[in-house]
Every structure is written in structure tokens, then in C-alpha cells.
Amino acid sequence: MIRLLDFIFAFAGLLLLWPIIIVIAVFGYFDTGAPIFRQTRVGRNQQPFTLVKFRTMPIHTQSMATHLVSASDVTRLGRFLRRTKLDELPQLINVLRGEMSLVGPRPCLFNQTELIEAREQRGIFDVRPGITGLAQINGIDMSDPTKLAQWDHDMLATLSLKQYFLYIIATVLGKGAGDRTS
């Protein structure tokens, strides 16, 4: 049921929001020269997939967890996109492809070994990673791997259709701070 809802909402989101996506892409082109950011992330069953987002940092920024990146590396447009969570819109493509869900644990990088270990211990990789979830709407980022993995576990243990919709609505209404930078 969740996969069907993910597909319907992602398809509808892309269909309805394509004008906004095009405008952001154009502004992003003038901001960084390459508005789309692709990065290999850890997916379901620890399989790699390519996450797609709007670029919020210059092209030369080192690939690492966001909480380790300096806030000065985020562009002006990038700050706006992160604050409004519009940088996440292209991930609807990942949802359509079945690599992600709208709701689930945020996908980490393969070099975040502490987080991967903590998630392995709690069975987090049994599900698709998500665009939003309990940790995200509560401002918990990847800087505390054990805490994040526990919140991911708690979310998955109590995830219902009602919770699915509540997490999406809370995200759309702006709850949560997004990825923090140092």
C-alpha cells in the first residue's frame, strides 16, 4: 500500500510541481553552473543508488555528510532551498524508481560507517530510505549516529498509514530544520 501511495504522490508531485522544478533548475544553473546534484547513497538492503537533489553547494565541495560541511559552503540559493526543503524535490524521481519512499530513514553515505553500523543493528536497511521521517521533522540529523538510528527504529516500529501522512504533512508545513551544516 505504501509503495503505491509513494508512486502516486511522487508522480502527482512531479506533474504538478514541474514549473517550480524548472525555475529552481534555471536559478541553480546561474548559481552553481550545475543545478542537479547526484550522489551515491546507501539504499534498501545496503544497495547503492544515486540520490538526486538540487545542488546547494559549489561543485567542488567535498562529498561528505552535511553536518561536516561548513555553512559558508552553502550558496545563497542553497540556503533558501534547504530552509524551504525545495532541494529535495528531485528525489521524487528516486521515489518513482522505487529506490526511496516518501517516508523512511534518510539515506546515508557509504563512508558514514558509525551510522551504518547503528542502523544494521536495528534492521533499518530492511526498508527503503525516505525523503522525510520522524527524525527529520524533529531536527535530528546524522551528527549523532546512535540517536538517529534509534529514532529511525522507533519510527519504523510505529509506522502506520496515519503516521505516513502525518510525517508528510509536517514536512510540507515546514517542521524540522533540514540538514545542518557546521
Results as ranks from 00 to 15, higher is better:
125 F>D: 07
108 C>Q: 14
64 M>N: 13
114 E>N: 08
126 D>M: 15
86 L>D: 00
9 F>S: 11
49 F>A: 13
73 D>E: 12
130 G>S: 04
73 D>M: 14
133 G>M: 02
61 T>G: 10
129 P>F: 09
99 E>L: 10
140 I>N: 06
46 Q>T: 12
176 G>W: 02
179 D>E: 07
79 R>Y: 04
13 G>Q: 02
5 L>T: 06
151 W>P: 05
45 N>M: 14
82 R>Y: 01
45 N>D: 14
81 L>I: 00
19 P>D: 02
68 L>P: 11
168 I>S: 13
172 V>R: 00
111 N>F: 08
50 T>L: 09
175 K>A: 14
97 R>S: 11
92 L>N: 09
154 D>N: 04
35 P>F: 05
131 I>P: 01
113 T>K: 05
41 R>H: 08
62 Q>L: 11
7 F>Y: 08
5 L>I: 12
47 Q>L: 13
127 V>Y: 15
81 L>Y: 00
16 L>N: 12
11 F>M: 01
148 L>F: 09
101 S>F: 04
140 I>Y: 05
51 L>M: 09
63 S>G: 10
151 W>I: 07
181 T>R: 06
175 K>C: 02
21 I>G: 03
85 K>S: 02
5 L>H: 05
71 A>E: 15
72 S>Y: 11
132 T>H: 06
6 D>I: 07
1 M>V: 10
86 L>A: 00
122 R>H: 14
57 M>S: 11
42 V>H: 15
171 T>K: 06
18 W>C: 04
16 L>D: 11
28 G>P: 12
26 V>Q: 06
134 L>S: 11
40 T>V: 15
129 P>G: 10
45 N>W: 13
89 L>R: 00
132 T>Q: 03
85 K>F: 00
81 L>K: 00
74 V>D: 10
169 I>F: 09
147 K>A: 11
129 P>N: 09
181 T>E: 13
16 L>F: 13
176 G>C: 05
38 R>G: 07
14 L>A: 03
45 N>C: 15
10 A>R: 01
144 D>I: 12
180 R>F: 04
66 T>E: 03
58 P>D: 03
182 S>R: 05
67 H>E: 09
